[in-house]
């Protein structure tokens, strides 16, 4: 379970997160929605130990990310694309990640195959398209066979086949008892994939709960989103 509680983040005088609290539960796909600049990436960065909160906690099964003994075997994550250096090949990128994370080498080929990059393992990441970079980021997230997946806009740049594939992947992951937390701007995708929703606007949570409850009283998720975030002006 991923538990975010009372999270506040300030950059100098700017408060970008105020008292953000929500959970992402095992067996469920949790969608994290909000307008540009609402604080989704900021929240996920704190959850992954990249940034420090000004106040509050973000825990993975009761522990902060930095205290996990084998972090990439507990949480697979992707923020801003692949995280691979442009002059390294996809395979060399995954190779060092596997080393650092204590993941057996055989997983490299398995995940390259799984994300559809089997033929691009020896290509420099600088030559990748947006969608290929995204797939490599997903490969790195899946490398350690983690119980939880934390993905910032994973669908961004994927082709129709890729979108269908990730839909199946995330559903399967949650159905097998895993936890999935993903941010996205694609309302129709989110409505199709997620079980639970967390909506953030201006650094504050404006709605959380099962998809059906959050949508209740609105025609579609999109309508609910605009009503809740006040972005429709």
């Amino acid at each position: 379970m991923l538990s975010i509680s009372g999270l506040t983040k300030r950059h100098g005088p700017r408060t970008v997160l105020s008292d953000v609290t929500f959970q992402a539960r095992p067996g469920r796909v949790t969608g994290f929605l909000g307008p540009n600049g609402a604080g989704k990436s900021s929240t996920l960065r704190i959850l992954l130990g990249l940034d420090r909160p000004t106040a509050g906690t973000a825990l993975i099964d009761g522990r902060p990310y930095r205290k996990l003994p084998d972090p990439i075997r507990a949480v697979g994550s992707m923020l801003d694309g692949s995280g691979a250096h442009r002059s390294r090949t996809a395979r060399n990128h995954l190779a060092w990640v596997a080393r650092a994370g204590g993941v057996p080498k055989r997983r490299i080929d398995e995940v390259l195959d799984q994300v559809g990059l089997a033929g691009a393992g020896r290509t420099r990441v600088g030559k990748f398209s947006l969608g290929m970079g995204q797939r490599l980021g997903l490969a790195a997230a899946l490398l350690g066979e983690p119980a939880a997946l934390v993905l910032d806009e994973p669908v961004n740049g994927l082709d129709p086949e890729g979108i269908r594939w990730i839909r199946g992947l995330l559903r399967g992951h949650a159905d097998a008892g895993g936890t999935v937390l993903l941010s996205s701007h694609l309302m129709s995708e989110v409505a199709e994939i997620t079980d639970d929703l967390v909506i953030i606007a201006g650094g504050r949570i404006v709605a959380t709960g099962p998809l059906t409850e959050v949508i209740a009283g609105h025609a579609t998720l999109e309508e609910a989103f605009f009503a809740l975030t006040g972005a429709d002006r």
Partner: peptide, 26 residues
């Protein structure tokens, strides 16, 4: 510096430090 060079915006604009600290958060 290689940890902090951003990938091209076409490829998500990410930096390697994200992957490094994901695997080794200490």
């Amino acid at each position: 510096s290689s940890e902090f060079t951003a990938n091209s915006p076409d490829a998500g604009g990410g930096r390697q430090i994200t992957a490094t600290l994901a695997a080794t958060p200490r």
